[in-house]
């Protein structure tokens, strides 16, 4: 049997849920004025929120059930007060829903409601021992998992666009989109189509029969794309149409010019410095080994050699007027090319 557990009158809904789950409680945790989590033996079996569509909203707004069928189902379970024929069971028995549909719908609704119910850091709390939901238990969820998922969903929203203000204010589509071409998802289309300038995302979700959280994600995306008005003080995203991040070049570009070798002619183009760090064995990227082309005329052409002729010695055969070639620089260059070629093998 469940131990009795005391929860504070005001506090964190998450902590209260953890306490109740730990005690294996059965009853209803009322959070604020609109939200409620139903527990059976410490597991969450149902959740309702004033901010998310109920399963009735979901089933009737989509025409899955006629409103009369839904009302009949509620009357059947509630009025008779028989715990064995709950509205949920009745809907399946009468063939209005399959068991799978009911489970999926209830699971979706619980996670959706829990996102809103567990969202506030502090709220008015009231636990009614033994209270159960009229629908009857269809499924059960580990409270820790439910709380973790609610927190994760909050993070996902902020990853889209970290401006929680858009969740609460009315959705107002901008008169002129900030881009010449707009692509909307089906749900975004529905939202923009129904937004009358007064409806909040939560009210839109109810009206459309769409999950509250799904509407929030699309509203955040619309806000990020600059397609709906932002609340006062919100910072619009700077780059809307460049979601692709360009890779940062591996070799940093610098304006610094290598100090010229003592005898070398001045090099006009800034030369890239080889990166300070190498990949272990001293190999450099091959691009760093390619010298900047010398400006034309700065170095006299070497005399052409006939095939078979002896190589001229560097110092003797060059014209006296020409500056000595930058031997040291060339040697360094050749070494670098050799190292780079070795690294390629």
């Amino acid at each position: 049997m469940a131990k009795s557990v005391r929860i504070p009158r005001t506090g964190s809904p998450r902590r209260a849920l953890t306490l109740l789950a730990g005690a294996g409680a059965t009853g209803a945790l009322h959070i604020g004025t609109d939200d409620c989590l139903y527990l059976v033996a410490g597991e969450v079996v149902f959740a309702e929120s004033g901010s998310s569509p109920s399963i009735g909203d979901l089933l009737t707004a989509s025409d899955r059930l006629a409103p009369e069928t839904w009302l009949t189902a509620l009357a059947t379970g509630g009025a008779a007060g028989k715990s064995d024929v709950r509205p949920s069971a009745w809907l399946v028995q009468q063939g209005h829903l399959t068991h799978g549909e009911l489970e999926l719908c209830v699971l979706g609704a619980i996670y959706d409601a829990a996102y809103f119910a567990l969202g506030s850091a502090s709220a008015l709390l009231r636990f009614v021992d033994g209270e159960t939901h009229g629908m009857g238990a269809v499924t059960s969820i580990d409270p820790a998992l439910l709380a973790r998922e609610a927190a994760r969903r909050r993070k996902l929203l902020d990853e889209i666009y970290a401006e929680p203000g858009v969740d609460h204010g009315p959705v107002i589509p901008v008169r002129r989109p900030p881009v010449p071409r707009v692509v909307l998802s089906a749900l975004q289309w529905e939202i923009v189509g129904q937004a009358d300038g007064t409806l909040t995302p939560v009210a839109l979700a109810r009206k459309l029969g769409r999950a509250g959280y799904a509407v929030l994600t699309e509203v955040r995306r619309l806000a990020a794309a600059g397609l709906i008005a932002l609340p006062a003080g919100a910072i619009p995203l700077p780059v809307q149409n460049a979601p692709i991040k360009r890779p940062v070049p591996a070799i940093p570009y610098t304006d610094q010019v290598d100090p010229p070798a003592p005898a070398a002619p001045p090099v006009a183009m800034p030369r890239r410095r080889p990166p300070a760090e190498t990949n272990g064995d001293g190999a450099l990227p091959i691009r760093a080994a390619v010298p900047a082309p010398a400006p034309p005329g700065s170095l006299p052409a070497l005399p052409r050699r006939e095939p078979g002729e002896r190589l001229p010695t560097m110092t003797d055969d060059l014209p006296d007027s020409a500056p000595a070639p930058p031997v040291t620089a060339d040697e360094a260059l050749l070494k670098r090319i050799r190292t780079a070629l070795k690294a390629l093998r």
Partner: peptide
């Protein structure tokens, strides 16, 4: 894809 008549993305 699991297509339900009511709103879900499953």
């Amino acid at each position: 894809m699991i297509r339900t008549d009511f709103d879900s993305r499953l």
